[in-house]
Write a protein that binds this DNA or RNA. Structure first.
Length: 257
DNA sequence: AAGTTTCACAACCGCCTAGGC
DNA sequence: GGCCTAGGCGGTTGTGAAACT
């Protein structure tokens, strides 16, 4: 692919936008829309590349953008969504009306990452009861790229057959309020897990716990899940755990979300 | 008060993907 | 099917402001 010449070589301007440039862009888009970003700057009389115009509009000038500091609620939402989705800023922004991916990315790197480090030295989730109602305090776990280990609970791993997995997940050695250590795993875990579950002993209708985009938890079956990236599954962007005690369609309570 | 460092955030860069031809 | 382009995304950088020495 032939890369387009950079802005400077084309004699186009870079760097911070002036109020005059902003006004030209706003007026043009209000009048004609932004069907073709590449052609827009020329037609509007701006010495900018289309990409720069698109970024300025989507990140700063759009009328539906919420300016100002993030509220506590918004910060909490970002933290929770980041646990589920990782650095998928646009997916996170889609769930925060009026906020842009760039803004969320910045607030994450400048505030929230530090805040999390200070507040959460240990990565643990708490199992409150199991298996009648699966409850967990998910506030502290870092991302959904994790493996639940020991104390009688583990997600399915590529090496485990269905029966082996069932035997691992028992409630007998789980006490109320017992904790489960969480460790991060590499991205191949989920893709391997999916291929393993599809290839072998995992029944197609094996129940899974699925987090949906609205942060509601529900059960589904593995047959309805599709990989969307190396570490997630679903039609959209979901994390999941297996729980053989649940049937597809069951609902669960997961405080903290 | 002046110089230096740190912080916050806007903007850019380069890669990827979808879609048209 | 291959090429090309536009748009979208996440990572990174640049720069002005604030805090610190």
């Amino acid at each position: 692919m032939v890369r387009a010449p950079c802005c400077e070589k084309m004699g186009l301007k870079k760097g911070p936008w002036t109020p005059e440039e902003d006004q030209i862009l706003i007026s043009y888009i209000q009048k004609y829309g932004h069907g073709n970003w590449r052609a827009l700057p020329k037609q509007a009389g701006l010495l900018r590349c289309g990409k720069s115009c698109r970024l300025r509009w989507t990140n700063y000038l759009r009328p539906d953008i919420k300016r100002g500091n993030f509220s506590k609620e918004e910060e909490d939402t970002i933290i929770k969504l980041h646990e589920m989705l990782g650095n998928r800023w646009s997916a996170i922004a889609a769930r925060l009306p009026g906020r842009t991916d760039n803004e969320i990315k910045n607030v994450w790197h400048t505030h929230l990452k530090k805040k999390l480090k200070q507040n959460q030295p240990n990565s643990k989730i708490k199992i409150q009861s199991f298996p009648e109602t699966f409850k967990c305090d998910a506030v502290n776990h870092p991302t959904h790229l994790m493996k639940l280990e020991n104390q009688g609970f583990a997600p399915v791993s590529p090496q485990q057959s269905c029966s082996e997995f069932s035997s691992v997940v028992t409630s007998e050695n789980l006490n109320m309020d017992s904790s489960v250590t969480v460790s991060e795993i590499d991205e191949s875990f989920w893709s391997e897990t999916l291929s393993s579950s599809k290839n072998s002993s995992m029944p197609a209708d094996y129940p899974a716990i699925v987090t949906d985009p609205e942060l509601q938890f529900q059960c589904s079956s593995i047959s309805t899940l599709e990989p969307i990236c190396s570490y997630g599954f679903s039609n959209e962007d979901l994390g999941f755990w297996y729980n053989p005690f649940l049937d597809a369609g069951d609902s669960l309570e997961l405080p903290g979300y």
